[in-house]
């Protein structure tokens, strides 16, 4: 192999760079950082349209379903498992309670690096506490 020294050094440098986040964590950096979404005041103890576990894992799927059902099937009411009825609306239902989108939504979205563009159209007030 030509230039084997340079090639191997280069490969090693590349491997170190790629795994840098792991080394950083292992070296006691901000390891194990987890975003902590904060509920808006007065929401403790209140029930969402679905269980906390379901919402945490699947709120985006539920919103996609809502979107298609409202626009394409004219089905505008969501029934939670215990029979409560909600209007399927990001602005008028979700954000009515979760008014602190910056602390509640953006923290996780930023952490996982997703940029949902729902709010470009579905939220016309300035996002409160946007980060």
């Amino acid at each position: 192999m030509y230039d084997s020294g340079k090639v191997i050094t280069g490969l090693l440098a590349f491997a170190v760079l790629v795994t840098l986040p792991f080394w950083y964590t292992a070296a006691g950096g901000k390891g194990g950082f987890r975003p902590e979404p904060k509920l808006a005041p007065g929401l403790e103890g209140k029930k969402c349209v679905e269980s906390k576990a379901f919402m945490r894992a699947s709120h985006m799927d539920l919103l996609n379903l809502w979107r298609d059902e409202v626009v394409r099937q004219d089905l505008r009411v969501h029934f939670s498992p215990d029979g409560r009825a909600f209007e399927k609306s990001l602005t008028n239902t979700c954000l009515k309670c979760h008014s602190n989108t910056g602390e509640f939504c953006d923290r996780c979205h930023n952490y996982v690096g997703v940029q949902p563009y729902c709010w470009d159209c579905h939220m016309e007030k300035k996002l409160k506490g946007a980060e």
Binding site: A57, S58, L65, E69, Q73, R76, V77, F79, A85
Partner: peptide, 27 residues
């Protein structure tokens, strides 16, 4: 059940999200 929740008659439909059933209806 949907009708009972809203008080008056309305259409209802069931869809699955991640294995769980979600019910929908009209106003």
């Amino acid at each position: 059940a949907g009708v009972a929740a809203l008080g008056i008659g309305s259409a209802s439909l069931v869809k699955t999200v991640n294995g769980k059933e979600r019910r929908s209806g009209k106003f």
